[in-house]
């Protein structure tokens, strides 16, 4: 379980806190989507959960963050890192090695994964992310999207209990983006991995994440299960967060018909709703 309690964090030499009074809970095996405008503090939140704040980024830290019972302030970074895997927003600075294979090996070697298990985990991660053919390539010869997949695979190979992803589909085409989210769903459902993912494509969040948190100017504007957050479509739009068209449709219908309709997040649900209403 991830528990953030009343967290306020100000980067060193900054005046304004990047996060203010953040409280949120993600249960074991939960799936939280985070969305919000640029500079809202999304990356900062991920840094706090991964322990990079306060261990690598100095600043004023109030409140507490605990991951599976470990207080990030008191636990050493390597210890937290055994539980938490992080995919960075800037893929290019995340990738350390000159070759794909070494990038996957890096974490596995450091955390002392048994020798015989390493090739199994590597192959599995490469296959799941769909880049088995890139194994022997140099990083320099890959496209942005391919590099992003390498970064994801290198973290998936570590099989962390908690998986944090900072805009993992930024460089990906729509099909690969869905593929990444399907993988997150698979890990979440089959291995009970707790997932927190920052994502700008609201459609993907609606479809895959159970919980949604909307950040704005360092504060949580809304949080809760995805459907209930989507009820605030108009206010969300004011923050630059677009709701999917199906959600807008169900909202308009609720208003026009004067009776509350369930919030739809998928086209199939909207279809079912319309059929029901016509009848």
């Amino acid at each position: 379980m991830i528990e953030v309690k009343d967290l306020t964090f100000t980067y060193k030499d900054e005046k304004k806190p990047a996060l203010q009074n953040i409280s949120l809970t993600v249960p074991d095996g939960g799936f939280l989507g985070v969305i919000g405008p640029a500079g809202a503090g999304k990356t900062t939140l991920i840094r706090a959960v991964s322990g990079m704040i306060p261990h690598l980024f100095p600043g004023d830290f109030y409140g507490s963050v605990s991951v599976n019972g470990l207080d990030t302030f008191e636990t050493s970074l390597p210890e937290i890192s055994r539980l938490v895997g992080t995919v960075f927003q800037d893929v290019d600075s995340q990738i350390i090695s000159p070759m794909v294979e070494d990038e996957l090996l890096y974490g596995l070697e450091n955390f002392g994964i048994p020798r015989e298990e390493i090739p199994v985990r590597m192959e599995e991660a490469l296959r799941k992310v769909g880049i088995a053919d890139l194994r022997d390539r140099t990083i320099g010869s890959l496209s942005g999207g391919q590099r992003q997949k390498v970064a994801i695979a290198s973290i998936v190979a570590l099989r962390p209990q908690v998986l944090l992803l900072d805009e993992p589909t930024g460089e990906l085409d729509p099909q690969s983006s869905r593929q990444v989210f399907s993988l997150l769903k698979e890990l979440n459902e089959e291995q009970g991995t707790t997932v927190i993912v920052i994502e700008q494509k609201i459609m993907l969040l609606c479809e895959f994440s159970a919980q949604l948190a909307v950040l704005n100017q360092g504060r949580i504007a809304w949080q809760g299960d995805t459907r209930s957050v989507l009820l605030h479509a108009e206010e969300l739009l004011a923050l630059g967060v677009n709701c999917p068209r199906v959600t807008t449709l169900s909202r308009i219908l609720s208003a026009r018909l004067g009776e509350e309709q369930p919030v739809c997040t998928r086209p199939e649900e909207a279809e079912a709703m319309i059929r029901r209403l016509i009848r």
């Binding site: 390597p78 890192s81 055994r82 995340q94 450091n110």
Partner: peptide, 13 residues
């Protein structure tokens, strides 16, 4: 950033 990426993947271990 790269130093951070190495640190959270057990650089010090």
């Amino acid at each position: 950033q790269t130093a951070a990426a190495a640190a959270v993947r057990g650089f010090s271990l």
